[in-house]
Simulated assay, not measured.
Amino acid sequence: MNFATQSRFSDPGRHGDWLDDTPADIAALRDIASGLVFHHWAGGDPTAHGFEPSRLAEVDLRYAEAMLGRLRELDPTLSGAPRRPTDRILGCCRDFTLLYVTLLRHHRIPARTRVGFADYLLADWHLDHVVAEVWDGSRWRLVDPQFPADNALPVDVLDVPRDRFLVAPDAWRALRSGVLDPSRVVVAPDLVEPFLRGLPYARHNLALDIAALNQHEMLLWDIWGGMNLDPTVSPSDASRADELAALAPSALQAAFADDDLRVPPVIQSLSPTTHTLAEVSLRS
């Protein structure tokens, strides 16, 4: 699979020309991406920062082309200079990462999104997170595009250690072996729904990560195939996840052809803005 080419999700489409003057540099593009999104809950109530309530729908923007179009409307410059909060789109870690991957692929730098859990966002917790995996010419390295360069995180966002961000297969194996405490693996500590914690959500992220390795950069609340909202993981589902988590990335790409993993033309999505499960037809 050629990760230097755009996917149908990362393709900038008619806004590709807007990216032409950005530098073909991993660090500089990370800094640009970090200023394009305002996190829809980590930054507090968006309306307190000047966002109109109607803009909450931006968190469901799925394709980079639509995201870039909205950003271009809000501020037609793409210099990397700080944007006002309301000149960014509302989104989450997935959106910082998708836009970063779009920028990298625009310059033919191989990149892909990885879904998993980070232990550097909040002490003593492994939080649901998405980062980029970038080929730097010699190895795949994890790069976190969400935070500004002057962040106070205890990791180098340009080279996140793999024991600080666990890609979903690694997180699943660590949970199953008892290395990780499932009560500390969550979307957020204050979200108490059983599905959003421990093994159920780790299984969800495993499916998302396998899709990402196959250039399907899905929304974090998408559901398809073998995914569900069950509060526990059945023995058969756990066994299937064990099998998948043991595979190398190349084998996970091959496994994506299986019915329980392959993304179909129509999926379901549980938007955090509407809290309802809706059918979504994907762009072909």
Results as ranks from 00 to 15, higher is better:
residue 120 Y to H: 07
residue 155 V to H: 03
residue 4 A to E: 10
residue 225 G to C: 05
residue 148 P to A: 15
residue 174 A to I: 05
residue 252 L to I: 09
residue 9 F to L: 05
residue 224 W to N: 03
residue 137 G to A: 05
residue 32 I to L: 15
residue 20 D to R: 15
residue 254 A to N: 11
residue 189 P to D: 01
residue 126 H to F: 06
residue 187 V to R: 05
residue 175 L to N: 01
residue 127 L to G: 01
residue 139 R to K: 12
residue 254 A to V: 15
residue 271 S to K: 06
residue 256 F to K: 14
residue 22 T to V: 15
residue 160 V to Y: 01
residue 159 D to P: 03
residue 157 V to K: 00
residue 214 N to D: 13
residue 89 I to E: 04
residue 258 D to I: 11
residue 76 P to C: 14
residue 91 G to C: 07
residue 228 N to W: 11
residue 197 R to T: 07
residue 105 R to P: 00
residue 108 R to V: 07
residue 48 A to R: 15
residue 235 P to I: 12
residue 57 A to K: 11
residue 31 D to F: 07
residue 58 E to T: 07
residue 197 R to A: 13
residue 203 R to S: 04
residue 173 R to W: 04
residue 279 E to F: 12
residue 13 G to M: 07
residue 242 D to E: 12
residue 195 F to L: 07
residue 227 M to G: 08
residue 7 S to A: 13
residue 251 A to T: 10
residue 135 W to Y: 11
residue 192 V to H: 09
residue 93 C to T: 00
residue 233 V to S: 06
residue 9 F to P: 03
residue 3 F to R: 00
residue 111 A to V: 08
residue 59 V to E: 00
residue 273 T to G: 04
residue 202 A to W: 01
residue 118 A to R: 04
residue 272 P to E: 05
residue 81 A to Q: 11
residue 160 V to G: 02
residue 194 P to S: 08
residue 131 V to Q: 10
residue 46 P to H: 03
residue 107 H to T: 05
residue 176 R to I: 02
residue 188 A to T: 06
residue 135 W to G: 00
residue 176 R to S: 08
residue 169 P to S: 07
residue 129 H to Q: 07
residue 52 E to W: 11
residue 69 G to D: 04
residue 231 P to Q: 14
